[in-house]
Design a protein around this nucleic acid. Structure first.
Lengths: 112, 112
DNA sequence: CTTCATGCCTAGACACTCTACCTATCAATA
DNA sequence: TATTGATAGGTAGAGTGTCTAGGCATGAAG
């Protein structure tokens, strides 16, 4: 039945791609597994809807930040994503961008 | 002349309203002054374009988080915004939401 | 008299997330 | 056997928010 529990833009724009690249930096995964992995490493705080996840994957694939290959896993077709060199550079950039933003925001929050 | 230096969504979605409410929590200000104040308290790291600032102000005004009054300052008309009780509650919520998000993101970034 | 800082504003493009839906396979359960 | 839940992929459309790029007007300074 899938109740909609009023999730009003849970995540901030642009953050998702960075988080996906981050988990892919550890090991290649397919989309569904990425979603579960994000749940794990966030201590259950992140539950990415498929309607956010898959478009994000297509985005980063089109930007050539990952290489995708169709594989058969336990009888099911799965599209496995692996981060590439360009993706790793982009990830670095996005992390430093995030950190700068976070520090700027807390500057404003604490600094009147 | 106002060159566009390739600012690709400098700020994250939803953050701006929080930051505006934050500076208004100190003292009422008009729009233009809010922009300058955000520049100051962020050590120059934030330069909010007017095309972001004014829509944001109209948003939070429509959500009744601030009270606005037209005043004459140095011969010019200025719309002064003051945060109200509802706005202060909302600010609190948004700050805790932000902090949770920030901690979740760093959890993922550090936690593989 | 022209430029700069101040002060307000909008339209339209663009980007990203969300809800809500679709398909399909495999395992377990009723 | 039928059906549900987990796994695995996907799209369409709405909603939201930021940005670019313009507009208008006043007061002070050159």
């Amino acid at each position: 039945m899938k109740k909609s529990q009023g999730n009003r833009t849970e995540l901030l724009q642009g953050t998702l791609d960075m988080l996906i690249l981050r988990v892919l930096a550890e090991t290649p995964l397919h989309g569904y597994a990425i979603g579960k992995r994000l749940g794990e490493v966030s201590a259950g705080r992140l539950e990415i809807p498929q309607g956010s996840l898959y478009p994000a994957l297509h985005r980063i694939e089109q930007r050539a930040l990952v290489d995708a290959t169709w594989t058969t896993i336990r009888g099911r077709e799965a599209k496995v994503y692996a981060i590439n060199a360009k993706g790793r550079r982009k990830l670095k950039d996005e992390i430093s961008g995030w950190e700068e933003l976070a520090s700027t925001v807390s500057l404003v929050l604490n600094n009147a």
